[in-house]
């Protein structure tokens, strides 16, 4: 039901998501613990990311779908590297 550590920094709503939502502000270079289904994975933040904002969990090519809640919420307007902040500058409808 839950894996050992309760200290998580971000949550992926669905295991198929390629972004997660940060639960508090994270600094560039910080290791971010992301809860995804039963697992907790670690991604290194490439940018400073505010609370409630999205962090990329994997590489997303320009034009590829950005997935949150197991659904497509838009596409990458530029190549996105793991750990980067995903928002209006690189995600469009």
């Amino acid at each position: 039901m839950t894996s050992a550590s309760a200290a998580i920094d971000a949550i992926a709503v669905d295991t198929s998501d390629n972004v997660a939502t940060c639960l508090h502000a994270v600094e560039a270079g910080a290791d971010v613990s992301v809860k995804s289904g039963p697992d907790v994975i670690t991604v290194t933040a490439a940018d400073a990311i505010p609370r409630g904002h999205k962090i990329a969990l994997e590489e997303i090519a320009r034009g590829d779908a950005v997935r949150k809640y197991g659904e497509v919420i838009g596409k990458a307007s530029t190549a996105i590297a793991p750990g980067q902040h995903v928002h209006t500058h690189n995600l469009v409808d």
Binding site: T21, C22, G52, K54, K68, E71, V72, I73, G74, L91
Partner: peptide, 10 residues
Amino acid sequence: GLTTLAEKSL
């Protein structure tokens, strides 16, 4: 932190 309309609605 919400970016697109689809993200908000979903």
